[in-house]
Amino acid sequence: MSRDPVARDPGLQPERTALAWQRTALSTSMVALVVAFACLRSGFLIGTLVAGAVAVGGGVMLFTGRGRRGAWTPLVRITALIIATAVIGGVLALLILF
């Protein structure tokens, strides 16, 4: 841990990556909040609960960020959050369709 190989990268790649993580987590949280309110409007309360939990998870990822153990685990987490949002959105569309 004495030496960080990208500590003085003039291209600011670690900073750009951290910002990419931040805006991904923030967008996930915001979209999940929108889904939660849409579910609330349609009376789909389970969807509201799940989307609210996704929003909280996105908020947690916004503050924990990527960590130092490689990209895989946080990538899996954010993908799981987005897939949960997508499923809730699909169920909502089906509910309104029928």
Binding site: T17, A20, V34, A38, L75, I82, G89
Partner: peptide, 27 residues
């Protein structure tokens, strides 16, 4: 590696934008 990670995140956000658009259309 960092560039690869940012590319994956950009794809993740593309998917998220599709979900957001779908929910907006549903509403």
């Amino acid at each position: 590696s960092l560039a690869n990670e940012r590319t994956a995140l950009a794809w993740v956000r593309t998917g998220l934008a599709l979900v957001a658009g779908g929910v907006a259309l549903t509403t």
